[in-house]
């Protein structure tokens, strides 16, 4: 009983309750036939939202106005460049990963450079850098679709012990993020900055260093996600990141992280990512048309946010 009460007090519980409810509703509708397939698909597709969502979570936690809108462009550029560098050759996988990380770091540096040196609000800075990044991807790609190396194509679509490999990657990254946030000094600093930047600075928090690291971290995760997604889907596409702009923000908020900054949590990102995928597949299973699907998705998201926020204020 005590455990239930404590669980209900967690900000992330509502995302999981919602995800589970939708999962159950879908399975019951299909008479249990789709249980394994649906669960695996959910874990696979949620994994990509989780990876970008974690980066966005840290950025949003930096406080009002902080958001990274360059995530889709970063995903596209990283996927495009990495596949071209590897050129379907298994021996060049390490080079491909290095290129991915380098792109993430470079975009992170550029984003914070714009924010700090030109004093542009983050929302504008990351949006404008995303145009440059996206254009670079278009110029670099020239419409050629290169397949991923065989190893990677195999790895990203396979499962280990029934769990999709991409979900395992997402889990490892999540554990790292959780440790950073809950146990590390970095998480404390991010949260302090998000609550009151001036007070954090006067308390000795290296505000610029932490914000810089956070924007770089977010861009690196976006690049990694782009890399994985392009391997998973058999090649990079110029619009492959588009849906992750809103998704990355939605999973942070549904997951119970404070929109105004200062408070974050990792488990909620999982609940919210699973939930977002499952809602769409539930409505598909019910045979809803595209318009109805979008409408209901919006309404359900709003309902979850209301449930979660009311619980928090008590």
């Amino acid at each position: 009983m005590n455990l239930v009460v404590r669980l209900l007090a967690k900000p992330w519980i509502w995302a999981f309750v919602a995800a589970f409810g939708v999962w159950l509703a879908t399975i019951l509708f299909t008479g249990g036939a789709s249980t394994l397939g649906l669960s695996q698909a959910a874990l696979t597709f949620a994994a990509f939202s989780i990876i970008v969502g974690l980066g966005q979570m840290f950025v949003i936690t930096l406080g009002p106005g902080n958001v990274d809108l360059s995530i889709p462009a970063t995903m596209t550029l990283a996927g495009t460049v990495a596949l071209k560098v590897m050129d379907t050759n298994n021996d060049l996988i390490v080079a491909g990963i290095a290129a991915t990380l380098a792109i993430g770091i470079a975009i992170g540096i550029a984003n914070y450079g714009l924010i700090k040196l030109l004093r542009i609000p983050p929302i504008i800075a990351t949006l404008s850098s995303s145009f440059i990044v996206q254009s670079t991807a278009i110029w670099y790609n020239r419409g050629i679709r290169i397949k991923p190396p065989a190893y990677l194509a195999e790895f990203s679509t396979a499962s280990t012990l029934g769990i999709p490999n991409v979900a395992i990657v997402a889990l490892v990254i999540s554990i790292v993020a959780w440790v950073l946030l809950e146990k590390g000094i970095y998480g404390r600093w991010v949260s302090a900055i998000g609550q009151n930047m001036r007070a954090a600075r006067l308390a000795g928090v290296p505000v610029d260093g932490v914000r810089f690291a956070t924007y770089v971290f977010c861009a690196v995760l976006a690049a990694l996600c782009g890399f994985l997604l392009s391997c998973f889907s058999g090649g990079a596409a110029l619009n492959m990141g588009a849906e992750y702009l809103l998704t990355s923000i939605a999973v942070v908020i549904i997951g119970g992280t404070a929109v105004a900054g200062g408070f974050a949590n990792v488990p909620g990102i999982w609940g919210a990512s699973l939930f977002l995928f499952l809602v769409v597949s539930m409505l598909n299973t019910y045979g809803a048309s595209a318009g109805v699907r979008l409408l209901l998705t919006g309404l359900i998201i709003i309902a979850v946010i209301i449930a979660a926020s009311r619980k928090q204020t008590v």
Binding site: A192, Q195, N196, A199, A203, F263
Partner: peptide
């Protein structure tokens, strides 16, 4: 630093 204006310079309210 010990802040005097607690809400502006000191407290981390959450």
């Amino acid at each position: 630093f010990v802040a005097g204006d607690r809400h502006v310079d000191g407290n981390l309210p959450l």
